[in-house]
Design a protein around this nucleic acid. Structure first.
Lengths: 153, 153
DNA sequence: TCAAACTTTCAAAAATCTCTGAAAGTTCTG
DNA sequence: CAGAACTTTCAGAGATTTTTGAAAGTTTGA
């Protein structure tokens, strides 16, 4: 049955997302939105479909909205809140992860300040700082390159 | 006191590493190796200095070695095992994270296969697949660019 | 080869994180 | 405006992860 197949694929997707750091309920909500047959989905539909509590759905929606992965659908009539995956969500997510890169850069930089430039640790910290500094500069450019390439098609 | 400052910086670093997904003991071991005053450090030194059990140190070393962040030091005399941060560790780490990107790509690809290309989900999954496909192709090149730039200096 | 020092393993304790369920708060519709 | 349906919040139950501590296994040097 086709539905079973997509459910299984969605659960596999949720597993991957979990390994990427999302909690289980959140990952399943995101996967459900990815695999949804309609343009948007309501919270009760998610709770029902996934067999989780409304509280879990609420928490998942809050988290995914904060990160910018999903959004409320403007007003498809005037019914209750509908949610859907945002356009360009993945690029947004990658940009968000760039703040982790920034944190690594800053931690290394502060480390150098704390050790003094001639300590043995300084060389190690400098390599770290330079690497994450490079990535922090270049990753946004990479994402932009993707967006440019995409809009060209 | 200078030592206190570097300890504090190391703990801050450990916190950042924790947010990056490492468990606490592992993050503290890595930070200790980053901030160490000597070229290499033994497991008992780490356990003593961090106030954690030898079992935790062993687990941390195992994990960090597997990922390629640290290495045994060949033979600084012939004493017990010494460990240190590997040269180019951060580039290695970034490359390892690329396998997460690959997993995302593959999950999206399998999702498309499961839904059929005309389902509403297919467009969403295709955007995801294309994005992670792009990143999976381009990230290694970015790391290489870093390495080239670094060796030039 | 033996003793000492180190390392690894693993079960159980401790700590942490996640989910639920119910109550309180909203918003819509009749 | 009242009732119904939905949403949010949060304390506590439940699940999971992490750490420890101790025993077993190694390695080293005399």
């Amino acid at each position: 049955m086709a539905l079973a197949d997509t459910t299984e694929a969605a659960e596999r997707m949720a597993l991957v997302l979990t390994q990427g750091g999302l909690q289980k309920a959140t990952a399943r909500v995101l996967a459900a939105l990815l695999f949804a047959d309609s343009d948007s989905v309501t919270a009760p539909q998610l709770a029902e479909g996934l067999g989780i509590s409304s509280g879990s759905v609420s928490g998942a929606i809050k988290m995914l909205s904060t990160v910018g992965l999903i959004e409320k659908v403007p007003a498809p009539g005037s019914r209750r809140e509908h949610y859907r995956l945002r356009e360009g969500a993945w690029a947004t997510l990658m940009s968000a992860q760039n703040s982790t890169v920034q944190a690594m850069f800053e931690a290394a930089d502060q480390g150098i300040a704390a050790t003094g430039a001639d300590a043995p640790a300084a060389r190690r910290l400098a390599e770290m700082r330079d690497f994450y500094g490079f990535m922090f500069r270049e990753l946004p450019a990479l994402v932009e390159r993707w967006q440019a390439e995409r809009s060209r098609c």
